[in-house]
Nucleic acid binder design. Structure first.
Length: 447
RNA sequence: GUGGCUGUAGUUCAGCUGGUUAGAACGCCGGAUUGUGAUUCCGGAGGUCGGGGGUUCGAGUCCCCUCAGCCACCCCA
């Protein structure tokens, strides 16, 4: 007897059994549908890139998290850790033939060798959409609308899209003479919701070296509250005189007005100016946004994005501005699960046909084929086991309907259509065209 | 990367200060019931106690290492 190898998965990597994969695919399909409805086109890029493509920006953290190795030809390669860098490489390489504006979506796995935590894995999926090659605010507005449509379609309950503009904070920092400390200050302000005003104030003054007055002004902006109009007016006062700040406020004002004009009135409250949102990412230069679920704000942002001036300057001299966002698939799934909004279905077909009469396999197969031709998903059980066992199987998998077809039914040219949710059987005539059967099934599936 | 907690059947867990053949519930398979799915009754399969090493007469229980999970920090391009 040889020693068996223990079946196991790598740290941070996951298997997806049907009950995980079915809701996953549903979200992916929904994202795809919404993205396409705005004219975004699918692209894909390789999982592996030349190492230099990925390390171009070269921060230490990137280095640590990057999966890298030499391929069989001795080339230094790395696995993509997001979809933005490959997009930058892609457009730099192909923009001549793509033309602008270029709208694409990409739904694919990425890999980061970071430490794991709940909801943070080493292999995970991103669902990005971006518009490249235009600075028009229309694209920023569209980004908000896409996210709104998407979350509405996903039935996540009420949600809030928090919107800011990098120019607002930059304007204030410039005015306060703190521009050189931007990164640290943004990082600290980003923690406001998490660690509170006092700690942020202390960190700003003690760690970063801002004066109390400077820190007060920063906090005043970050803690603004109230209506979008009121907050924008306050923010405008704080940054007045700076080009970046005034531009940021006006962009925000215009964006929020356009979104409000487009969405139904009950949706307007979902759009919030949020001066403390900045998204740690260096490359954002304009609008930035994050989205939280009102029923589960603690889980963090489930869709985030923003505008950047120059996506691909590492790879091309051509200026390629863009705007885009990403859906946080794993967080969203975790949230939906926690909120009990995921059905526990393990089957992909609606109708189950038990193998009842072992002499009539072909009859079952033919009926199944007719139903499928009518667009109804059908599973035929492979073994002629006891009917009770087969129905138990159907019940556990979450089938909606079972068709009971035994000797009696065949003799009478009829079929029992059993609604598994309610437990009731309806007898339907079994004709060659199966029309009565199809009608009954449709009637149960879509009352 | 740092620190803390955890790891026993498919699942959730029990197993007293180390002591004989490691238990339960649920689930799974089969039967009661050769034509009807969350009920009932009966029976069955399933664990080298995450893995490795050590202490001991003896380790699921103590020690070390390792792997994996959870939590916090760090970080999240």
């Amino acid at each position: 007897m040889s020693e068996r190898i223990k079946p196991r998965t790598l740290k941070g990597f996951r298997d997806y059994p049907p009950e995980k994969m079915i809701p996953r695919e549903w979200i992916i399909e929904t994202a795809r549908r919404v993205y396409r409805s705005y004219g975004f086109s699918p692209i894909d890029t390789p999982a592996l890139e030349h190492l230099e493509i990925l390390t171009g920006k070269g921060s230490d953290e990137t280095d640590k998290q990057l999966y890298r190795f030499e391929d069989h030809g001795g080339r230094p390669v790395g696995m993509r850790f997001d979809l933005t860098v490959p997009l930058a490489r892609f457009v730099a390489q192909h923009i001549q033939t793509l033309g602008t504006p270029f709208k694409r979506y990409q739904i694919a796995n990425v890999w980061r060798g970071e430490n794991t935590q709940r909801g943070r894995y080493r292999e995970f999926m991103q669902c990005d959409f971006d518009t490249i090659g235009t600075t028009s605010l229309s694209s920023d507005i569209e980004m908000v609308l896409v996210i709104h449509d998407l979350l509405t379609a996903l039935e996540v309950g009420e949600f809030t899209i928090h919107i800011n503009h990098r120019g607002v904070l930059n304007g204030l920092l410039e005015k306060l003479g703190l521009a050189d400390k931007t990164v640290n200050i943004l990082r600290t302000l980003d923690k406001l919701a998490k660690i509170g005003e006092e700690k942020v104030l202390r960190e700003l003054t003690e760690t970063i070296g801002a004066t109390t007055n400077q820190a007060d002004q920063l906090l005043k902006l970050s803690s603004l509250d109230g209506s979008n109009e009121g907050m924008l007016a306050e923010a405008e006062k704080l940054v007045t005189g700076t080009e970046a700040g005034e531009h940021g406020v006006s962009q925000l004002r215009e964006l929020i007005n356009s979104v409000a004009a487009t969405l139904p009135s009950e949706a307007i409250s979902r759009i919030q100016f949020a001066p403390s949102i900045c998204r740690g990412l260096d490359y954002y230069t304009g609008i930035v946004l994050e989205t939280t679920l009102n029923d589960l704000p603690g889980i963090g942002s489930v869709a985030s994005g923003g505008r950047y001036d120059n996506l691909a300057n590492l790879y091309t001299s051509q200026q390629l501005p863009g705007v885009g966002a990403s859906l946080g698939l794993d967080r969203l799934l975790a949230a939906l699960e926690e909120l009990g909004r995921l059905e526990k279905v393990q089957t992909t077909a609606e109708v189950f046909i038990p193998f009842f009469d072992s002499e009539r396999r072909n009859d079952y197969l033919q009926i199944a084929a007719k139903l499928r031709a009518a667009g109804i998903g059908v599973e035929f059980f492979p073994d002629a086991k006891k009917l009770g066992k087969q129905l138990q199987y159907a019940n556990r998998r979450g089938f909606r309907i079972a068709l009971i077809l035994g000797g009696d039914e065949f003799a009478a040219a009829e079929c029992q259509v059993k609604d598994l949710a309610v437990g009731e059987s309806h007898t339907v005539a079994l004709a060659d065209d199966a029309q009565a059967l199809i009608a009954k099934i449709r009637n149960i599936l879509q009352p």
